[in-house]
Design a protein around this nucleic acid. Structure first.
Lengths: 108, 108
DNA sequence: AAATTATATCGTAATATTGCAATATAGATT
DNA sequence: AATCTATATTGCAATATTACGATATAATTT
C-alpha cells in the first residue's frame, strides 16, 4: 500500500513520528547541522553546501519547515531560515523518557 | 527517483538519519511506547495492541531492530524484544547540541 | 522596465515504503 | 511425529518519497 494508517494512532504518536521522519534523511540532518554551525542560512547556502539541485534543497527546506523544525523569515530577496528550539525539546523529552525507562529495566 | 544519495553524506549523517527514519512512523513510535511501559514484548503483544496485521508488525519490529533501537532475544518459542538504550543516547546527544546551539542564537 | 538574483512550484521518472494474505520456519506440546 | 504456537518471509498492490529540469514568482539592481 504505502499509506500509513494515521487514524489508528494518537495525535502525539503521529506528530512525533512526523517530526522524526522529517529528520530521517541525511540531507535534512546536514541542513540542521549547517544551521547549528552557522545559526542561519538561505536556500542558496545549502545549494552550495550539498550536491543536490536547488529544487531538491527547496523541497527539503519545506519539509523541515512544515513540521516546525526550522522557521523562515523573508529578508528582502531571500528567505532566512533558522532552527526552532521547541521541536527539539519535544524530541529530547521523549528520548529522556525512553532512556529513563530503559536504564531502570534490564533486557529480557 | 526515490533514491537517497547516501554517498554524498557523512557516515554520521546517514546513521543518524536511518535511526530517526526508523522512529518516523506512528506504529513504531507506538511500539517504543509499549516497550517503555511494559519493558519487553513479543510480536504477538503488539499484534494485540495495534490494528495492524501480524506480517506488518513483524516488519516494523525488523526495522527497529535493524537500526539497533530494539534487540530481540530468542526465548523458547517466541522472541523477546526490548529497548536498546545506546541508540537513544546518541539521539539525545544530537538533540542536546541542537538545543544548546539554538538557545544561544536568536533567529534571523 | 529590463535584467538579475533567490526561491518556490510543477511535472515526471525512479525508487522506497506500507500493508496484508499466503506461506515458510522453528520451537513446544501432545 | 503430528499438531500447535509464534514469528518471519515472500509476493504483490497502493501510495509516498526523492530528485531534478523547467518554469513561475517576487524582490533587487541596473
Amino acid at each position: 500500500m504505502g499509506i500509513t494508517k494515521s487514524e489508528h494512532f494518537t495525535d502525539h504518536q503521529n506528530e512525533l513520528a512526523n517530526v522524526l521522519k522529517a529528520l530521517g534523511h541525511p540531507a535534512r540532518v546536514a541542513i540542521v547541522e549547517y544551521l547549528i554551525q552557522h545559526k542561519q542560512c538561505i536556500c542558496g547556502d545549502i545549494v552550495n553546501e550539498l550536491p543536490l539541485s536547488q529544487a531538491t534543497i527547496s523541497q527539503h527546506l519545506r519539509e523541515l519547515k512544515q513540521v516546525g523544525i526550522i522557521q523562515g523569515n523573508i529578508e528582502g530577496n531571500s528567505i532566512c531560515y533558522c532552527l526552532n528550539p521547541q521541536v527539539f525539546e519535544q524530541i529530547t523529552k521523549f528520548m529522556g523518557i525512553v532512556i529513563e525507562s530503559v536504564t531502570k529495566n534490564k533486557c529480557c
